[in-house]
Nucleic acid binder design. Structure first.
Length: 482
RNA sequence: GGUGGGGUGGCCGAGUGGCGAGGCAGCGGCCUGCAAAGCCGUAUACGCGGGUUCGAUUCCCGUCCCCACCUCCA
């Protein structure tokens, strides 16, 4: 089976073939860095990270771009607010910052969150403010083609003319007539209320640093334009996949498509959208205030378990967070890890082997990760059965390692990752001494003493397991030690 | 009003016109000095009402409910 992907634009699963053999160009929308990330942002990144890994496992070279929107209304507003006399420092906004510093601080928070969950960095990560020239060129092409116009008032805005582009609405299969008018629609200098800004004229009171000269007056980029400008700059006028969260489908992606297509670019061949993360059934978002941060999750469970949770549902499904979900994910991850430490007691985790066909088929089927995980767990069970019979299971272990690589579950940095420091060294010696005492007690059939030692260790967060080759122990959430 | 996606066993979550994934939790068994881990077994699951069919959770019609987008949003 070859790779098939769901394309939002056609609403169908289609065979995927890249434009250029052997190479896939992928653009997906990153964050507007106006605040700290929540897990919804990270879920999207995990979804496209898994896509990238699967494409690479399938033999493609992947050229990936994820943008950073580092200027927008909210960034400017928050920065401006931080300079007012009534500014109250908060955890999110500890100090007064110029807009660019504020944006960069949050960009770093996003980077940290991605890194903490093993999301590999894209090939390029361009910022909107670094691509003003490309945006001007695109605006000029649109004006030239009769699809954009300077605002009819003196605002200095430049708008896309929705009525001039009859395909407008094709991505989300909506007609302009049926669209609900915004309740507080402000027509400004627009020909049609649905026309959207390509360029926003500089407003009095906004910092000079947040505007650039242009043929249409000083101003700054509109949100939708940047993605058109940057994706085609780095990937070409036509590229393979454009991704992002489902909430970006309209208006953001619809507008991108309109701009680029009206300018004559082929633009994206496939549109992929990940489902939302919900909390108690409701979309997680800043405006609702029901967000959970990656840090919140990492305080509850190991990074690998958090990543497993975020990746386990199909990427197009809604992912509902509820208490206990992370503990379930942790149990599933530990089951896999227990098998690996049984099957590979020497810790030979480089012995990666071929992927099972059932796993490949599942991933080829529009990245059916739930079915791929079923293949993974079946391999684990078969391996455990072999071990129970006294047979070798290194082959199954190698397959498990390969599957974990595709899912990105081996790239997640673990805080207790084995390398130690003096405190861990001391701990290892102390635990070993206790286990030796316990082994002596067991040999003497003094089970009362043996159990007392074990419960003392358990109470200290050290879990003890007896195996045919002696006792092994692990910290309550950490790597096993012989 | 428009557009798109859903309602699957205690929970999560795939999938399919007929042999009912997988995980987590529970119960029984094997193993263990006891545990843990592991293995085996186990459950009246497919919102509701019709229809098509030899047979529907899967197709069609109707109906109820939920979510997302139409405004900044991964």
């Amino acid at each position: 089976m070859a790779l098939r992907l769901y394309d939002t634009k056609t609403g169908a699963i289609r065979d995927f073939q890249p434009l250029e053999p052997g190479q896939v160009s992928l653009y997906y929308c990153g964050a507007t860095v106006q605040g700290r990330p929540h897990v919804g942002h990270v879920r999207s990144a995990v979804a496209f990270d898994i896509l990238t890994r699967w494409l690479e496992a399938s033999g493609y070279r992947v050229l990936s771009v994820r943008n950073v929107t580092d200027i927008d209304d909210k960034i400017l507003e928050k920065s401006a607010a931080s300079f007012r006399p009534d500014f109250q420092p908060q955890a999110d906004y500890p100090a007064a910052d110029p807009w660019f510093a504020l944006a960069y601080r949050f960009e770093q928070a996003f980077t940290s969150a991605y890194d903490a969950l093993g999301v590999r960095r894209p090939s390029y990560e361009p910022r909107a403010t670094g691509h003003i020239t490309e945006m001007h060129a695109l605006i000029a092409r649109l004006i030239e083609a009769g699809h954009a116009y300077p605002a009819l008032d003196d605002s200095g805005d430049v708008y896309f003319d929705v009525r001039s582009w009859e395909q407008y609405g094709e991505l989300t299969r909506q007609s302009v007539e049926d669209m609900q008018d915004a309740p507080d629609v402000d027509p400004r200098g627009k020909r049609d209320p649905r026309d959207f800004a390509l360029w926003k004229g500089h407003k009095p009171g906004e910092p000079d640093s947040a505007s650039w000269e242009s043929p249409w007056g000083r101003g700054r980029p509109g949100w939708h334009l940047e993605c058109s400008a940057m994706s085609t700059k780095y990937l070409g006028a036509t590229f393979d996949i454009h991704g992002g969260g489902l909430d970006l489908r309209f208006p953001h992606h619809e507008n991108e498509l309109a701009q680029s297509a009206a300018a004559g670019d082929g633009f994206a061949r496939f549109w992929m959208h990940n489902g939302m993360v919900t909390f108690a059934g409701e979309k997680m978002s800043k405006s609702v205030g029901n967000t959970i941060s990656p840090e919140d999750m990492l305080a509850q469970a190991r990074p690998t378990a958090v990543r497993y949770f975020l990746g386990q549902a199909h990427y197009r499904s809604q992912l509902d967070y509820r208490p206990g979900a992370l503990q379930e994910a942790e149990a599933a991850v530990e089951r896999i890890e227990n098998f690996l430490s049984r099957a590979l007691p020497q810790g030979d985790f480089a012995a990666v082997s071929e992927l099972p066909q059932s796993f490949r088929d599942a991933m080829d089927d529009d990245l059916n990760v739930p079915a791929a995980l079923a293949a993974l767990h079946e391999t684990v069970r078969a391996g455990n059965t072999a071990l129970d019979r006294g047979e070798d299971a290194s082959g199954a272990a190698g397959q498990v390692l390969a599957m974990l690589d595709v899912l990105g579950l081996r790239d997640v940095p673990e805080p207790d990752g084995g390398s130690g420091g003096p405190a861990l060294e001391a701990l290892i010696h102390l635990v070993q001494a206790q286990l030796e005492r316990r082994a002596e007690a067991k040999a003497a059939k003094d089970y009362a003493t043996a159990d007392a030692i074990r419960s003392t260790l358990t109470a200290a967060g050290v879990e003890v397991e007896d195996t045919p080759s002696g006792a092994s122990w692990s910290l309550r959430s950490g790597a096993a030690h012989g």
